[in-house]
């Protein structure tokens, strides 16, 4: 059969089950080159028109760290003792948290920004998701360089657990992207979703050990312990900074649950694109 054969029909039954499950992987493979190209394009263009360029990647997390350090030092907010120097704790926390939030918003943002092309050219949509992931990896990579520098200066040394760090990092991206793909189609129809997500992540951040430690007996601490993001976040930070694993079974369990969620999100995203194109036009 012709490898380029395509059948477009309203009747879902006519499409073979095989193509429903194999097509996503084929498209994913086909989208690699385009995803890379889109990433290069977006990174180049976003920094070419700015004076400070790539430095902007550092500036936001640095400001965040400074604010929380000031709050802590001035005693406005009393934060329990952290196992590693507080600046490292906040910096890793905010960095890892932004990996999650960026992954969550990325499918929506990426798709919105290429809406005009989506309605005119047929290309593997996976490229949009993938390029979003690449951009986050690029940002995170740069932040990690700064992070390692700071850690060494402050005397925090990673140990062999560092080998596991990528797993935890990918888990955060995996979680973000899975839900991001589920939310993106709704967000493309209704602008409300794009406003709700940042608000919700803000709330979620205070329920997670991003800027303060999970310690004690308060309600918030209990919420934090149940929060499925906690093990991802805590282990990512611990493995990066030479601490030990925590809630490891919870960590594994969440990742297992994320696998079907991720595939559901992916398939949902794929089937929704023609519907979005239909409703939003060119």
């Amino acid at each position: 059969m012709n490898p380029h054969y395509k059948l477009y029909t309203a009747e879902a039954g006519k499409k073979s089950r095989y193509s429903l499950f194999s097509a996503p992987f084929k498209d994913l493979a086909d989208s690699q080159g385009l995803a890379m190209r889109l990433t290069i394009r977006d990174i180049k263009s976003s920094y070419r028109g700015s004076f400070l360029g790539v430095l902007w990647i550092f500036i936001t997390p640095l400001m965040n760290t400074l604010i929380w350090m000031m709050l802590n030092v001035s005693g406005v907010v009393r934060i329990a003792e952290t196992p590693i120097p507080y600046p490292v704790y906040i910096f890793t926390g905010t960095m890892l948290w932004s990996v999650f939030t960026e992954s969550l918003l990325s499918p929506l943002n990426q798709t919105t920004s290429s809406k005009s092309i989506l309605s005119k050219i047929n290309f593997p949509k996976e490229a949009l998701i993938l390029s979003g992931i690449y951009k986050i990896l690029f940002n995170t990579g740069i932040k990690l360089i700064l992070m390692f520098g700071t850690m060494l200066i402050l005397g925090v040394y990673p140990d062999w657990h560092l080998l596991f760090f990528p797993i935890a990092l990918f888990s955060l991206m995996f979680a973000g992207t899975a839900f991001g793909m589920l939310a993106a189609p709704l967000g493309l129809l209704y602008g409300d979703v794009g406003r709700i997500i940042p608000m919700a992540t803000q709330v979620l951040m205070y329920m997670s050990p991003v800027v303060y430690v999970m310690k004690g007996e308060g309600v918030l601490q209990k919420v934090m312990a149940i929060n499925p993001l906690t093990p991802l976040l805590v282990n990512a930070r611990n493995w990066l900074t030479g601490l030990h694993s925590e809630q490891i079974y919870y960590f594994i369990g969440i990742n297992l649950v994320l696998i079907p969620v991720f595939f559901a999100g992916w398939l949902f995203y794929r089937v929704s694109i023609p519907i979005i194109v239909e409703r939003s036009g060119s």
Binding site: K6, T9, A10, N122, P274
Partner: peptide
Amino acid sequence: GLLTPDKGSIEM
């Protein structure tokens, strides 16, 4: 392939 037909089919 940008839109899916509501009725009928297209083979390419």
